[in-house]
């Protein structure tokens, strides 16, 4: 019973840059089939290496995230040769949509909760690697799920944690430019509440350092 259900119920719901997501069924449960498609622009050997690596590591990181106290979809099956992961379908809006329609107060509480979850990951040495508001979903019961750990890694270093939050900040700036500052502030306050003020301050400093390192940032020292 390990064949992928290709009944008419299977339909493509998202063609992302890296993977296609199909909504399907897995033993009478609604499931997401995530297929990392071969990328013909890069050499086959490099392509296979990247896809296999991400297919193996993503479920491992999702599992460890649960141990850290962060909700992630259940993994039903992994098929490395086909770069395919079958996992639980989480019904609910993406944070991207939610933030744009929420009240200021609601936005604040959502972002604080996101910050808490990021801190839980970091505390356990997990880096999400692609924190955007498209990769965070709120289930009907209110639980916040993190998805798409394909670019994640296990890393305890301040540098990795700083980049992780820097990416979230950048995602907020490009997608929610009208109110990104209040969102990021709320993220950091939730982060601080879980990881502790001293550590949060260190990570915050690191984020500034990463930004100064980038090219053409006004804050950078001449």
């Amino acid at each position: 019973m390990d064949t992928i259900d290709k009944t008419p119920k299977t339909r493509l719901i998202k063609k992302g840059a890296e993977a296609s997501l199909f909504l399907s069924e897995w033993h009478n449960r609604r499931a997401i089939i995530k297929v990392r498609i071969p990328k013909s622009y890069r050499p086959a050997a490099l392509d296979m290496q990247i896809r296999s690596y991400r297919t193996v590591h993503e479920p491992q990181l999702m599992h460890e995230a649960k141990t850290a106290g962060v909700a992630t979809p259940l993994i039903y099956m992994v098929k490395v040769p086909e770069s395919t992961i079958i996992m639980q379908y989480i019904e609910g809006p993406q944070m991207k949509t939610l933030l744009n329609s929420a009240s200021k107060q609601h936005r604040r509480s959502l972002c604080t909760e996101i910050g808490r979850n990021v801190a839980r990951l970091h505390k356990d040495g997990l880096i999400h690697g692609d924190l955007t508001t498209s990769n965070i979903i709120q289930a009907p019961d209110g639980t916040i799920y993190f998805v798409d750990f394909g670019l994640g890694e296990k890393n305890m270093e301040l540098e990795a944690q700083g980049v992780d939050l820097h990416l979230l900040k950048r995602a907020l700036q490009s997608t929610h430019f009208g109110f990104w500052e209040e969102c990021f502030q709320a993220v950091m306050s939730g982060y601080s509440a879980v990881i502790g003020e001293v550590q949060a301050e260190k990570v915050y400093e690191k984020i500034s350092e990463i930004e100064r390192r980038g090219r053409y940032v006004e804050e950078r020292k001449q």
């Binding site: 063609k15 992302g16 840059a17 890296e18 990328k39 622009y41 890069r42 490099l46 955007t132 498209s134």
Partner: peptide, 18 residues
């Protein structure tokens, strides 16, 4: 070239999909 260009292409594709 293959590594560097694959990286920028992947990033461009992500922005395109987004």
């Amino acid at each position: 070239q293959e590594h560097a260009f694959s990286m920028v292409t992947e990033v461009t594709e992500r922005a395109l999909a987004h």
